[in-house]
Design a protein around this nucleic acid. Structure first.
Lengths: 263, 263
DNA sequence: CCATTAATTCCATTATTTGGAACTGAGTTT
DNA sequence: AAACTCAGTTCCAAATAATGGAATTAATGG
């Protein structure tokens, strides 16, 4: 109960510890003050204080006049470059747009990182929600379309490494919360090449996804079309499935064509 | 000529050096290999190699099979949180949208960070360019509307600190490249509360901007409306100026109302 | 296959981080 | 007003991690 406080990487080395502190603060729901960080970081006062000071000095955090630490702008600058120059994203973009044109709904591209899905890109259905709040967002693997698609592309060993110790938290009544049921589902996804999310993560949100992977680049990802349940029925999802699979196939083909040869 | 290779922060401390390396790689136009980084980092082989390894281990960089270092996904995750939880952005968002509705053109919110403007948000004119490629982007202060607006909000001392040693590189025939001319321009902006960018940064792009600042929060920023020269004449810019100034005023009022009291 | 360049590993030296404790200063209670 | 509390900051000897020159191994290409 207290062992998995920072279960991803345990923050080894000076940089690792600094990043652990940064992540704690940056991902916190609300601004944290020194004592708040101290409570969860498990580090001595002096040490933590210096780490925070260094992070502030580097522009990764900002210290507001009211002593609250908030994420700094340097992160944005770095991430912007990281996004703009991401080759995988660039290769996939036209396929995402095509898929959006065909379906009219929101299209996502998500990559597996550790035990999470990170959304790399999206094409919005309209500008309703207005922003790529989603890009860079981390979501669970086991209850999102993209996540399950990505899991299905893994070999047994890699899959086990991710699932072992992963808590299958319930988000909605449909969330898969048993390991056995998840493995069944993944087998089905492997067979059909298609993953569905039937309101398993957010109530009222459905989605069809297909895996995208590339052994040479050790890349495991997924594409999906997402829509509100009132507009997108299960029949509609089935109908879109081939297009989603086709887009995924196109991305993979393009990947090996564009990036493979020169490997 | 070789002194200002890393002129912003000189990367002191272990974290600072690591960040300097990260920035070098993340902001590079193209993927860098070990030797490429070595050439510009000015550090011994062993040292640099370990630093890069640590960055890879932390997910801030990725090492591709072809030995090229590329920005890692963890940056996106951190930046996404940083963006989503930024209070200033949240306060400004409705004003940006109003400005977009009034003008129909692209609206930007940019913040001064060091000697650069970092774009915090934008509302696109249409989905032509499709993505917030701009968000997190760093642009020069002296030849963008938002940048000049922000500079005009600074006191003499702060302004001097930024301008001293800043190279006024020419981007277009209209770029202001003399310090004196820039100071004149800033005086004019201070007087009128409005900054123009008359194709000074990118040919064919014009913009009106107004400063947004808050002494209490040590925040210096700007809002702008940007459009292509063929569609947006100088008369049009003049016409929009009051609205832009009004939006900037609204943001400042809201800032002190929402965040001021509880300081 | 050999020559050459690039990438990685090694390890004694050096610099930085560590962490317990003491200090400061603002706000609160007696 | 003095005593108390709590959050934040500073200090410094000991422990730890980073440094960097040189040797080793892997990749490239002629």
């Amino acid at each position: 109960m207290m062992a998995n406080e920072r279960d991803e990487e345990a923050g080894t080395g000076t940089l690792g510890k600094a990043m652990a502190v940064l992540e704690t603060v940056a991902l916190a729901e609300r601004p944290m003050r020194f004592t708040d960080v101290l409570a969860v970081s498990g580090q001595p006062r002096g040490t933590l204080h210096r780490q925070l000071s260094h992070l502030v000095q580097e522009g990764l955090l900002e210290l507001r006049p009211d002593h609250a630490y908030v994420p700094g702008l340097r992160l944005l600058k770095l991430a912007s470059a990281s996004w703009a120059r991401n080759e995988f994203r660039a290769v996939a973009a036209p396929f995402l747009e095509a898929l959006h044109r065909q379906t009219g709904e929101t299209v996502h591209l998500g990559v597996l990182r550790g035990r999470e899905i990170i959304y790399l890109d999206k094409v919005e259905s309209r500008q309703a929600v207005r922003m790529n709040s989603q890009i860079g967002n981390a979501s669970p693997v086991y209850c999102t379309g993209v996540g399950k698609a990505a899991l299905a592309a893994l070999d047994a060993e890699a899959l086990d490494a991710i699932l072992s110790g992963l808590e299958l938290r319930r988000f909605t009544p449909q969330t898969i919360t048993s390991r056995a049921a998840l493995l069944d589902e993944l087998a089905q996804i492997r067979a059909s090449g298609i993953a569905f999310d039937r309101e398993e993560h957010e109530p009222g949100i459905r989605c069809v996804a297909a895996p995208v992977f590339d052994a040479g680049r050790a890349l495991v990802a997924g594409v999906s079309v997402t829509g509100p349940a009132y507009r997108v029925g299960e029949v509609q999802l089935d109908d879109w499935a081939p297009r989603v699979r086709h887009a995924a196939g196109g991305i993979m083909a393009e990947l090996s064509a564009r990036l493979g040869p020169q490997r």
